[in-house]
Nucleic acid binder design. Structure first.
Lengths: 115, 115
DNA sequence: TCAATAGGTAGGTATTTGCCTAAGTATCTT
DNA sequence: AAGATACTTAGGCAAATACCTACCTATTGA
């Protein structure tokens, strides 16, 4: 339907969606230690390979990982820039909240000063 | 199906899923500036109220916001602790990657030293 | 008290997700 | 060249999502 939101147009949508799954987060955790082949990545999961490949595709589409094929082996690596982007989005609003707390703190401090 | 993953059991799943939507992120952005009623929050969005309420429920279930009703008005506020939790998950793996880069840097530095 | 206001419920639809099996297609390896 | 290896594609199904309209229920203010 035209009125319905169409699939994940946006980088943040895709990025956070990619992180909203334990399998995909485990892949990121693994890739943080170094690049790996698809089958090595898939080995720990009790899941058919095609299902696992879908998770990899979600991660790659979101830009969180990149992959390259040499011969019959596809190697995956983490793309930390995108993680950083998501991180920045979050800290921005944590920061906004801290600022307000700080302002409150300042206010209380001043109050203390005048007493 | 028993074999299928059951709905968002996990805090991280729920948290990241909640952030994977522009409407919900906009709510967080707004709440970072201060607490607000449901209708004030909903006003900017071209969406029926029940649809908007679903988004609020997703945010509340994820623990990203809390709400309380007084009279007929429900007030929503941000729960920054949960944002911080998600943030920590991400930075953990950004950090892992930086460590490896640092090690590489150290290696290159040493190589430079011996030359 | 009656109507406007603020929110909530019920129930319905299209799309997306997450999983599967079955059957490819390229590379190695022997 | 034949089999093993490492993915890939196709197609299918159930559950979750993201919307909607049509009511309903409390408050509050005139």
């Amino acid at each position: 339907m035209a009125n319905q939101k169409q699939a994940l147009t946006n980088r943040l949508d895709q990025g956070f969606h990619a992180l909203a799954d334990a399998t995909r987060r485990a892949v990121i955790a693994r890739l943080a230690e170094g690049e790996t082949s698809v089958s090595d990545l898939a080995a720990p999961f009790d899941m058919a390979l095609p299902s696992f490949l879908q998770h990899l595709r979600v991660l790659e589409t979101a830009g969180l990982i990149t992959t390259a094929k040499q011969g019959r082996v596809r190697t995956c690596r983490l793309e930390p820039g995108r993680l950083a982007e998501l991180d920045r989005w979050i800290t921005q609003y944590e920061a906004g909240w801290r600022q307000r707390l700080d302002r409150l703190g300042t206010l209380l401090d001043r109050k203390g000063d005048t007493q």
